Amino acid sequence: MSKGVLLVNLGSPDSTNPKDVKKYLGEFLMDERVIDVPYWARTLLVKGIVLNTRPKKSAEAYQRIWWEEGSPLIVLSERLQEKIDDITSVPIALAMRYGTPNILSGLRELHEKGVDEVLLFPLYPQFAMATTETILVLAEELRKEHFPDMKFTTVPPFYNHPDYIRTLANSISEKLEGIDFQHLLFSYHGVPERHIRKSDITSSHCKIDGSCCKTASAAHQFCYRHQCFETTRLVAEYLELKENSYSVSFQSRLGFDPWLQPYTDRTIERFGKQGMKKLAIVTPAFVSDCLETLEEIAMEGKEIFHEVGGEEFTVVPCLNDRKDWVNVMARWIDEWAHQKPVEA
Rank of each mutant, 00 (worst) to 15 (best):
E312Y: 09
T100Y: 12
I165N: 05
E243Q: 10
L6R: 01
I304H: 10
P91L: 07
A93Y: 06
D265Y: 07
F121N: 01
G48Q: 05
P72A: 14
E133T: 00
C212N: 11
P91E: 05
K19E: 15
T134F: 02
K113C: 00
D209N: 15
P91M: 06
A93S: 15
N327S: 15
G114D: 00
D116S: 02
L319S: 12
E117L: 00
H338Q: 05
G99L: 08
P341S: 08
T100M: 06
G11T: 02
K57H: 10
V191A: 14
A216Q: 13
P157R: 10
T134S: 09
L239I: 05
K278R: 15
H189L: 07
R166Q: 14
H146R: 10
D200I: 06
E295N: 14
E117G: 00
I172C: 09
R64H: 10
E312I: 14
W66M: 04
L142D: 00
F28R: 04
D209S: 13
Y164M: 05
F313P: 11
H189D: 10
H220N: 09
L279S: 06
N244C: 00
T167C: 14
P192A: 03
R197Q: 14
S203Q: 14
R194D: 11
K83G: 06
G114Y: 01
N170E: 15
F158Y: 15
S173Y: 02
